[in-house]
Design a protein around this nucleic acid. Structure first.
Lengths: 245, 245
DNA sequence: ACTTGATCCTGACGCAACGTCAGGTTGTAC
DNA sequence: GTACAACCTGACGTTGCGTCAGGATCAAGT
């Protein structure tokens, strides 16, 4: 006729909805150690244990980590102001990050929705454009770039990228042969270079300059096309002495 | 005079800002395996590898996990619409969760700011109240409860909780002795029970009923005070036959 | 008393994305 | 030749448990 004073781990699990494994874990890390054990080693939880568990659950729902909860519960006279403030900061940071993420994803989603044949390649391309536009272009330059992209179509873009790769390779080859930047061959390459740039930029000079800045600031992305400082300076010379502006 | 065509892992790390360890990891999981290795086994990354790395970075910034990115990059003709939608859903869920968290934390912060002697115990108490108020009380019942809490002060509350524990213990003891619920002793206990409830609720009957519902719905929290179904029914009988309503 | 099914125990691996040693090999410059 | 930088491959730590695995205990029926 004894009334329940102790709970076995399974009972506590059913009562609170916390899994047995979790309770095991809490025991292991010293967060919630049952006050009693049966002779055979079975965990027996007391009312105080239940109370502590409630507190743990509460703190967990506030986003605290287990070791933080442990600290808090083991020092009841500690002032939690600073802890709460810290927690608030963490949560706010998370929210900001996720909102930025959502913003980007929504943009992507819109852009993919417009193109009926959206493949992963398109996705990649779109991400590339987004990253450039984030810091290097004004909104209306952005829309121009998008328009030009749609105008060309993804197939054309890939073709151009391929020609671009081989063009840069040719330029590098000339450079390695120490051909003068003023030579006919190199000037021809420089001309084609400009044409390809114009295809991408739609002939907009400001956009071309921004693209240039972008690749200058991000040598890793330029390296993707085989462009490094040396190639850059070399082709710059060839273009600088060109009669075209 | 050869121009850079290959990058060692350290160079790539400096170029892209990705750590060597991360590149090792990407190699290990097959996400980015360098196309070449030197005779001695040093990793040599090609331009294509750099391109792939850029794509990986882009996808990571969109919140994709590495294995998802791997899948996407290995199947360029896959339609990513659904994937993006899924990702958006995930992010939105995260945001909602975090906003709820922030809401709670801000509430907590406010309440702790008001009380000058905020300790962890207060924090726990406040969380308890918040959890109850979230589903069981109307806003103005909530403010009444808060007022009553401030009126009592945290010391008094602890005192009451302690008396509560011993009161329940006494009731249980009588129950185990099979004392009639109508007996003088038990009726006295029931009377004190009501008084304690009134201290907490400020005498508000509706609040008392909601508290009752709360503990009925959450037997785990009632168990914290030593109240289970049997005790509950027993004390209910004692109170039902009382002359007070 | 014996068996059986439910419950409980203690390891130990898995996950996600790396950080951080540790101990040994290579590359390169003087 | 020798030092020092850069690279290599393990392997453990982090966070909060989920999920077996293999064995002991409990409660109930026969």
């Amino acid at each position: 006729m004894a009334v329940k004073e102790q709970w076995k781990i399974g009972e506590l699990a059913k009562l609170t909805g916390i899994t047995m494994r979790t309770l095991h874990h809490y025991d292991q890390i010293g967060l919630l150690v049952p006050t009693l054990h049966s002779d055979s080693g079975h965990r027996l939880y007391s009312r105080q244990d239940i109370a502590r568990l409630q507190q743990i659950i509460g703190l967990k729902q506030l986003g605290f980590r287990l070791n933080e909860s442990k600290e808090l519960l083991n020092h009841p006279h500690f002032r939690p102001d600073e802890t709460i403030r810290l927690q608030l900061r963490r949560v706010n940071e998370q929210i900001l990050l996720h909102e930025e993420l959502r913003h980007r994803l929504e943009g992507l989603y819109e852009m993919l929705r417009i193109q009926e044949d959206a493949t992963v390649e398109q996705l990649i391309q779109t991400i590339k454009v987004m990253k450039m536009t984030e810091k290097y272009f004004t909104p209306d330059q952005m829309s121009k770039i998008r328009k030009q992209g749609e105008l060309l179509g993804s197939k054309k873009i890939k073709e151009i990228e391929n020609e671009w790769l081989s063009l840069v390779a040719k330029v590098r080859s000339e450079m390695e042969k120490d051909t003068s930047p003023q030579s006919c061959e190199v000037k021809a390459l420089a001309k084609r270079w400009k044409e390809l740039v114009n295809l991408f930029t739609g002939g907009d000079h400001d956009i071309a300059m921004s693209v240039k800045r972008y690749y200058a600031d991000n040598p890793d992305k330029a390296a993707e096309f085989g462009i490094d400082k040396q190639v850059w300076q070399y082709i710059s010379k060839a273009m600088a002495n060109s009669s075209e502006y």
